[in-house]
């Protein structure tokens, strides 16, 4: 195994353990890893942006293909930097106006088409389809994805939730029943989203623990065990030092 991989295993194990120490309490090891994470992430974003924007979108089209129109977005972008010059800061408004104007213009027809009309169309579906042999497809089992009874459930859910958020009509009488149905649908969706998120995070945790177990193998120099011992010892030292400097109760 190469030196780079073994060194990488030690670094990855150390950083993973440093972050996990936050489960005990906030401590200098966690803060160190946290600040390193921010620094590396920003550095990575800068390098990737340089490669994508400066090299591929500006340098290559302008120098190799002679696309000098790109001077316009460069000028607009440069206007953003005028925020650092108080007397010229108003010029940055021109850049923001361009970005916001283009974004708003692009959003209107696309949002109406994709997120409003298409969603309404998919909410109102027939209960049965014609199969290729001429028969109709229909099943009462809601758990069957092909069941078109689910179309009714979807319709009830969408209408009741929309009604719950519609405050121009007082939620009394039949309206109260519809709004309450909306609340039940919302609670189920929030519960499902919560359960889904927890399991996604658990999946990430399992991934990290798998790496820690792998890096505890002899070919990696038992990095996990050594670094775990060092981390615990460091935490004990920090705890003892802080206890010594704390004022008496």
């Amino acid at each position: 195994m190469s030196f780079e991989v073994i060194l990488g295993a030690w670094v990855a194990t150390g950083l993973t353990l440093f972050i996990l120490t936050f489960l005990y309490q906030d401590n200098p090891l966690f803060k160190l890893a946290e600040h390193l994470y921010v620094g590396i992430s920003v550095g990575y974003a800068i390098v990737k942006t340089y490669d994508t924007v400066v090299i591929r979108l500006i340098y290559e089209p302008m120098v190799k293909q002679g696309d000098w129109w790109l001077l316009i977005p460069l000028a607009i972008g440069a206007l953003m930097l005028t925020r650092y010059v108080p007397k010229a800061a108003w010029m940055s408004r021109i850049a923001f106006a361009f970005v916001v104007g283009v974004g708003s213009g692009l959003a209107i027809p696309r949002v109406i088409s994709s997120y409003i009309l298409k969603q309404i169309e998919d909410t109102v579906r027939p209960l049965a389809f014609l199969a290729t042999d001429g028969s109709t497809t229909f099943t009462y089992s809601l758990l069957n994805p092909a069941s078109n009874l689910n179309a009714i459930v979807l319709l009830i859910g969408v209408v009741s939730v929309l009604f719950y958020f519609f405050f121009s009509v007082e939620h009394t009488g039949p309206g109260k029943a519809v709004a309450r149905t909306g609340i039940i649908f919302l609670m189920i969706a929030f519960g499902a989203a919560f359960g889904y998120t927890v399991m996604a995070r658990m999946s990430l945790l399992i991934g990290r623990l798998t790496d820690l177990i792998e890096y505890a193998q002899p070919q990696y120099g038992r990095a996990t065990w050594w670094l775990l011992a060092i981390t615990i010892a460091t935490l004990i030292v920090f705890h003892a030092r802080r206890k010594g400097t704390e004022p008496p109760q």
Binding site: A107, I108, Q119, L143, P145, L154, G157, F185
Partner: peptide, 30 residues
């Protein structure tokens, strides 16, 4: 079933509401 039907119906309703708001905001900005 919960994710594909019940959750999808709520997401769809919220998406329609948010989209109407986004269109209104875009018009106000323009």
């Amino acid at each position: 079933w919960i994710l594909n039907v019940l959750n999808a119906s709520v997401r769809r309703a919220i998406l329609i509401g948010v989209s109407l708001g986004a269109v209104a905001l875009s018009l106000k900005i323009i």
